[in-house]
Computed example of a mutant assay.
Amino acid sequence: MKVEGSASQKEFALFQQTFTPIFNNLNAVVTQINNASEDKKPVLMTRYNETLQRLQSEVEKFITPRRSSYVSLFVVSATMQAAENVTDVEKRFALLGDNLKNTVAGKEIASYISYAKVGAIGTDALEFTQNDVNDKPVSLSSFRGKYVLVDFWASWCRPCRAENPNVVKVYNKFKDKNFTVLGVSLDQQKGAWTQAISKDGLTWTHVSDLQFWNNAVAQLYHVQSIPQNFLVDPKGKIVAKDLRGEDLEKKLCEYLGCN
């Protein structure tokens, strides 16, 4: 008598054979990065990114011919945190059969995708309307056709106030190049909010419902810390997020030019 493993067992063995060396390599490079001097980190980061790209490639190669395999469901789940963005996870999940999507694990992945898509790069910016400092309603869609930096901040937030001069600099540099800023404040007191706007020289449009962390727009975008921002392109797509200091200017230079 000869007893052999099931088809799923063979597929899991293939998963281990394919992915274990990649995971081990990633972990080893991360350890090296953490212990390396600053001058050696760029080379190690390149190696890390190359290994990560290999991982992404192997995921799709594995699941595409095995769309009804529970091992494919496991592969999507085990690698989704390492994906470059949630849209990649969504595409891979879409390849799976309904028998897998309707499992408990499948529903957990679907829930993760739904949550992670909010504010993710490559997704549509969620529409909102909130009152400005003159109690006039302002909608994000009213800026369609421009690059818009949706900037979450507050007068009481010291890191936000420290970053404001950089945002002012960038706004002044690019405001005539189809760019603007839409500030969303998590303030509670209108006086403190408007005084900070004036003191910091924030001459763009600002909105708030003065509900602190319960600000409706912050809740909509799952904002849990500030400063936080999202760069929206003229078509309403989020093309970048969490841009600070020189990174903000560099990203705008990519889209709008610096000459």
Rank of each mutant, 00 (worst) to 15 (best):
N178A: 05
Y48A: 07
F62S: 10
M45P: 00
S72G: 11
A116M: 15
L248D: 02
N259H: 09
V133C: 02
S155H: 08
W153L: 06
I197E: 01
Q53P: 00
N172F: 06
L202A: 14
S198C: 00
V239M: 08
L52C: 01
S142E: 13
K61T: 10
D187Q: 03
E163V: 01
D132N: 15
K173P: 06
L44Y: 11
S139M: 03
N27Y: 05
I121A: 05
G145H: 08
A125N: 09
L220D: 04
L55K: 12
F174K: 00
E11V: 08
F128A: 05
Q32L: 09
D39Y: 00
K169T: 11
V118A: 10
A218L: 06
T20G: 00
D200E: 14
E84D: 13
G97R: 12
N35F: 03
D124G: 05
N27P: 00
A218M: 02
A94D: 14
K169N: 13
C160K: 07
T180M: 07
G122A: 13
N214W: 08
D187P: 01
V207H: 04
V76F: 12
D135Y: 07
N259E: 13
K91R: 15
C157D: 08
F12M: 14
T203V: 13
K146T: 06
S8C: 01
E58I: 09
C157S: 10
Q16C: 12
T31D: 14
Y115K: 15
V217Q: 04
Q228Y: 09
L140Q: 06
D39Q: 13
A216M: 06
W204S: 01
V207T: 15
N35G: 09
N172Q: 13
H222G: 02
V43K: 14
D187G: 01
L73R: 06
V148N: 03
T51P: 03
K190P: 02
L100S: 09
A13Q: 11
W204N: 03
F179H: 03
D176I: 05
S68N: 14
T79W: 10
Q188H: 06
N134G: 06
A110E: 13
G183I: 00
L126A: 12
W213V: 11
T203R: 11
K169Q: 12
G191P: 01
I109H: 11
S57Q: 15
F74V: 05
S139Y: 07
E4G: 03
K237E: 08
E163N: 04
V104D: 11
N178L: 07
C258P: 09
T18Y: 02
E11S: 06
P42I: 10
P42Y: 11
K250L: 11
N178G: 15
E254A: 07
A116T: 12
L140H: 04
I63V: 11
C253D: 08
F23P: 02
F23S: 06
F143Y: 15
N229D: 14
I113R: 09
K10A: 14
S225H: 10
M1T: 07
E163G: 00
Y112D: 14
G183T: 01
S8H: 05
D247F: 07
Q188R: 11
E60T: 13
G236D: 05
K136H: 14
S72I: 08
G145Q: 10
F143A: 01
R158N: 05
L210N: 01
G191H: 02
E90S: 13
S185C: 04
